[in-house]
Design a protein around this nucleic acid. Sequence first.
DNA 1: GCAAAAAGTTAGCTTCGGCTAATAATCATC
DNA 2: GATGATTATTAGCCGAAGCTAACTTTTTGC
Lengths: 150, 150
Amino acid sequence: MTDDENLDSTEAEARAVESRAEAFIGVREARRSEVAEDYVELIAELIHENGEARPVDIATRMGVTAPTVAKTLGRLARDGLITRAKYRSVFLTEEGRALAKECRHRHEIVLRFLLSLGLDPETAERDAEGIEHHVSERTLALFAAFSQRS
Amino acid sequence: MTDDENLDSTEAEARAVESRAEAFIGVREARRSEVAEDYVELIAELIHENGEARPVDIATRMGVTAPTVAKTLGRLARDGLITRAKYRSVFLTEEGRALAKECRHRHEIVLRFLLSLGLDPETAERDAEGIEHHVSERTLALFAAFSQRS
DNA sequence: GCAAAAAGTTAGCTTCGGCTAATAATCATC
DNA sequence: GATGATTATTAGCCGAAGCTAACTTTTTGC
């Protein structure tokens, strides 16, 4: 092996390792916003159904306890996604509404895609919930196209 | 609306809410094992490549710092997935090897599926990394079948 | 309009998974 | 085989997201 070849293969490997690391870093980033996205999406649904989003309903729908909801709502308010008054229901800010809309859009595309693959609705809903946060724009476009033509 | 209809729709709604909550609970459960799975899968690769898995290599490949790796390895050892000796490389237990094999299998199916959908390799690898932890057995089977016939 | 039930909050605990700074051990090179 | 570089560990910090227990506020039903 010449020095040049050696250098090339080393560099190629380094690039591969770095790109892999970036993939993991990307996944970790996505993970950080998952909970916020799930909450905002659910809050939007509740507001649509009931005109308001009560913590107790968020808790039962998310399968967590009321204090957990309270703490998470605190973070959402801090991040400018919801408005909050003590002992009252929560509502979405403009930013929150935008995020909710985007999430709902992704969710629907992923769900429709899984259904059009032939998955049962129950499992499709479950898997969509987990997958939707980890699908790039490109993949989402392919999913949408697939559902369309099938 | 009769009382019966009222009751039925209430019960149906309750079931839907509960099933939704279960989906979220499932996603949270999956989330808890994600990191362990990523590490074990990577450790298996490193052992395959180099005969051992050094913390420093795990760190660069995962895109985290050495102390983060050390702490996570502590958890993996506690959970019986790896063996560890101070200042030495880590190795997989029988259980760890089994998990790694399973993860690699899932990863490959998801990756091949995304590629056969027409996604570019870079994005496919990135998305597979995030998606693989949230795909049920059923969906995995559908993914595999799709790649096969295309 | 009051009492009980329901809902919301606060305090305080846990685990996980990141980080930096400091220390310790191993490895490589002369 | 000493020494400098690399690697590994430890200590200690942080924030997120879960929980229970205790308390306050609001809602409801008589």
